[in-house]
Simulated assay, not measured.
Amino acid sequence: MKSIQDSLYNWLSIKTVADARPDDTAAADTFSLFDQLLKENHDIQEISVQKDDVMYLVAYKLNGEQKSSRFPVELIDSMIEQIEAEPEKYKNY
């Protein structure tokens, strides 16, 4: 099983893609799967995301306790930036 930090990183990375590409069914399906796995494997609830110029802050409840994790914007946004830079490689089928 992956760590909570790794799972949140993956969840947030695909969330940014799904949010930026609402017609991308693959991104939406992948986000849905990652969201389900995050909740089922780690019992995380009430997830919220805030972004500033430098970091993403993911707040959540774990076993009834409020927790948070931070991720650099440049790491999380790298996937959507790559897709936007070469859209011909990432067509929505």
Rank of each mutant, 00 (worst) to 15 (best):
M1A: 10
K2R: 15
K2D: 10
K2P: 09
S3N: 07
S3I: 12
I4N: 02
D6A: 09
S7P: 00
S7A: 15
N10L: 11
W11T: 01
W11M: 03
L12M: 05
L12G: 04
L12P: 01
S13Y: 02
K15C: 04
V17D: 01
D19G: 04
A20E: 15
R21M: 14
P22A: 14
D23G: 13
D23E: 14
A27H: 05
D29Q: 12
T30M: 11
T30E: 10
F31C: 04
F31H: 11
S32V: 07
F34Y: 13
L37V: 07
L38W: 00
L38V: 03
K39V: 05
K39F: 00
N41V: 02
N41A: 07
H42I: 03
I44W: 02
E46G: 06
I47F: 05
I47Y: 00
V49I: 15
Q50Y: 05
Q50T: 15
K51I: 07
D52H: 09
D52E: 11
D53F: 11
D53T: 14
D53C: 09
V54D: 14
M55D: 06
M55I: 12
M55Q: 12
Y56D: 02
Y56S: 03
L57R: 14
L57C: 09
L57T: 15
L57F: 07
V58D: 03
V58S: 00
V58T: 02
V58R: 02
V58N: 00
A59H: 05
L62F: 09
L62H: 11
G64T: 08
G64N: 08
E65Q: 14
E65I: 13
Q66G: 00
Q66A: 13
Q66V: 08
Q66L: 12
K67T: 00
K67S: 06
S69R: 04
R70F: 12
F71Y: 15
P72K: 15
E74H: 14
E74F: 14
L75M: 13
I76P: 01
I76V: 15
I76F: 01
I76A: 00
I76Y: 03
I76L: 04
S78T: 10
M79T: 10
I80F: 07
I80E: 08
I80T: 11
E81K: 10
I83K: 07
I83F: 05
I83V: 13
E84S: 11
E84Y: 05
A85V: 10
E86V: 10
K89M: 14
K89Y: 11
K89E: 12
Y90G: 02
Y90I: 02
Y90W: 12
Y90N: 04
Y90L: 04
N92A: 14
N92R: 15
N92H: 13
